[in-house]
């Protein structure tokens, strides 16, 4: 039995090499113009975030308080995006803001993917009452509108960017959990898992070596799309005053501050919003492309 199983596995490895699903996926991904466009946008913002100290002409909070002539200046060759009520250069703040939004987006998604995968694997692999408890917990969390649940969590933890990140991560846990759980349930029935069990492999090893890698593709897809929502949710929490605190140049917070200057300084509102939209658009396009390439079944 064990021998045939190993043989089967070998056959599969050889077949994989011939077709190479990853190469095939890459080809599908690169064929899609929108996916490539999305990737370019995402890379652009990642580079902006990484090189913010070089790109931004001014520091995060450099203000010219003493000189009222630099307050609320419209976009010009000196201040590309204009200045805000404290005379801070909005272009610099938008550039610095890329660091914050991307960190919160990635951070929240990685945290929820790890937590969700852990719970999902346990639920799917052990089944029975463990599965029932975890799945019901997911159902209940999913039953809340996500921004509402995030608001409730932040109101316990206190308003800060870090707590906003944690809240968004918790809200997204069931999405990853359910995904992994269903993947585990289908992989569990595969013959090579039966084979692994038959040769006496430990549960933890089966989970880590076989089940987890096989659930990787949908997590990547879900993760990319989740970053888009996480960035919007973080900006929304900051906009409501439940995330970033002054003087952090968080895009949502900048929008909230711009509200009172809507009438005479609309540029304070236009550029941070544009930055959020473009970043989110990039991740959405890239996620759609990845989904078509890696997991066509997930469509719809």
């Amino acid at each position: 039995m064990a021998e045939t199983a190993t043989k089967d596995m070998n056959v599969q490895v050889v077949e994989d090499k011939v077709t190479s699903p990853w190469k095939e996926a890459l080809r599908t991904f690169l064929r899609s113009k929108s996916a490539v466009a999305g990737t370019v946008i995402v890379l652009f913002f990642i580079l902006v975030a990484l090189f913010a100290p070089i790109i931004a002409p001014e520091g995060i909070n450099e203000q010219k308080l003493g000189d009222p002539s630099t307050h609320l200046v419209p976009p010009s060759s000196e201040f590309w995006f204009g200045t805000d009520e404290f005379g801070r250069d909005i272009f610099s703040r938008v550039v610095w803001g890329a660091q914050i939004s991307l960190t919160v987006g990635f951070g929240a998604v990685v945290l929820s993917a790890v937590l969700g995968s852990f719970l999902g694997i346990i639920a799917g692999y052990y089944g029975r009452w463990v599965d029932t408890i975890i799945s019901r917990f997911f159902d209940i969390l999913l039953a809340f509108p996500s921004i509402l649940l995030a608001i409730a969590i932040v109101s316990i933890l206190g308003s800060s960017l870090q707590n906003a990140l944690i809240a968004i991560a918790i809200v997204n846990v069931p999405n990853f959990g359910r995904l992994i759980r269903s993947k585990v349930l289908s992989v569990k029935e595969e013959e090579y898992i039966t084979a692994a069990k038959a040769i006496g492999m430990k549960d933890s090893r089966i989970l880590l070596r076989h089940i987890l890698p096989n659930s990787f593709a949908p997590v990547i897809v879900q993760g990319t799309l989740a970053i888009a929502t996480a960035i919007i949710e973080a900006a929304a929490l900051s906009f409501l005053g439940l995330g970033a605190e002054p003087p952090q140049p968080e895009w949502g917070k900048m929008l909230a501050d711009a509200r009172i200057y809507l009438m005479n300084a609309p540029w304070t509102m236009i550029f941070p919003g544009l930055a959020i939209m473009l970043t989110v658009l990039g991740f959405n396009l890239m996620g759609d492309g990845l989904r078509d390439a890696l997991d066509p079944k997930m469509k719809n």
Binding site: S34, A228, I232, A235, A236, F239, G252, L255, A258, R259, L262, M263, P266, M269, I270, P272, G273, I276, M277, L278, V280, L281, N284, L285
Partner: peptide
């Protein structure tokens, strides 16, 4: 439609206020 799914509601609201009411 693609832009529509990516635009933050709160920014869109501010843009509308600026353009259509102010």
């Amino acid at each position: 439609a693609l832009i529509g799914v990516s635009v933050p509601v709160f920014w869109l609201g501010l843009l509308e206020q600026w353009l259509f009411s102010i």
